[in-house]
Amino acid sequence: MKTITIASAREGAGKTSIIVGLATSLGKAYGYMKPFGDRLIYKRKRNWDYDANLMVNILGIDEDPETISLGFNHSKLKYVYDEARMKETVVSMAANIGKGKDLLFVEGGRDLTYGASVHLDSLSIHQYVGGKLIIVYSGDDDQILDDITHLHSNINLKDVDFAGIIINNVHDVDDFENSHSKVITDMGIPILGIIPFREQLTYFSVNFLSEKLFAKVIAGEKGLSNIVKNIFVGAMSTGESLRNPLFNKENKLLITSGDRSDMILAALESDTVGIVLTNNLLPPSNIIARATEKNVPLLLVSTDTFQVSKQIDRMEALLTPDNEERIKFISQLVTKYVRVEDIIG
Results as ranks from 00 to 15, higher is better:
20 V>C: 12
58 I>L: 02
334 V>D: 05
239 G>F: 12
134 I>V: 15
314 R>K: 11
107 E>Y: 06
210 S>H: 01
313 D>E: 14
41 I>K: 01
200 Q>G: 03
199 E>C: 01
162 F>W: 07
16 T>F: 07
11 E>V: 05
345 G>I: 05
247 F>N: 01
295 N>C: 14
275 I>D: 02
233 V>P: 10
118 V>L: 09
117 S>G: 04
236 M>Q: 14
324 E>W: 00
207 N>R: 14
76 K>C: 06
9 A>V: 00
33 M>W: 04
317 A>P: 15
164 G>Y: 01
309 S>D: 09
314 R>L: 14
144 I>C: 00
259 D>N: 10
206 V>N: 02
268 L>E: 06
85 R>G: 02
86 M>Y: 06
240 E>W: 06
330 I>T: 06
235 A>K: 13
261 S>I: 15
297 P>T: 06
345 G>S: 06
270 S>L: 02
43 K>I: 04
340 V>A: 05
130 G>Y: 06
159 D>C: 00
106 V>R: 02
100 G>Y: 05
235 A>Y: 10
324 E>K: 14
36 F>W: 01
4 I>K: 11
327 I>C: 07
59 L>E: 09
240 E>F: 10
315 M>V: 10
267 A>V: 08
166 I>C: 09
64 D>E: 09
185 T>F: 01
116 A>I: 07
192 L>C: 05
220 G>L: 14
248 N>Q: 02
285 S>L: 02
158 K>F: 11
106 V>E: 06
246 L>C: 00
99 K>E: 07
168 N>C: 09
63 E>D: 12
263 M>D: 04
296 V>W: 10
1 M>L: 11
109 G>A: 11
333 L>A: 03
165 I>C: 04
199 E>P: 02
338 V>W: 05
337 Y>G: 04
6 I>G: 10
105 F>W: 15
103 L>I: 15
116 A>Q: 04
154 N>G: 14
100 G>S: 08
136 V>E: 06
22 L>C: 05
181 S>Q: 12
122 S>E: 00
235 A>W: 11
267 A>N: 13
281 L>F: 06
158 K>V: 10
267 A>K: 04
251 N>K: 09
341 E>S: 12
268 L>Q: 08
243 R>V: 02
246 L>P: 00
289 A>R: 09
332 Q>I: 02
272 T>V: 14
127 Q>S: 15
159 D>R: 13
203 Y>D: 13
156 N>C: 12
86 M>A: 09
245 P>T: 08
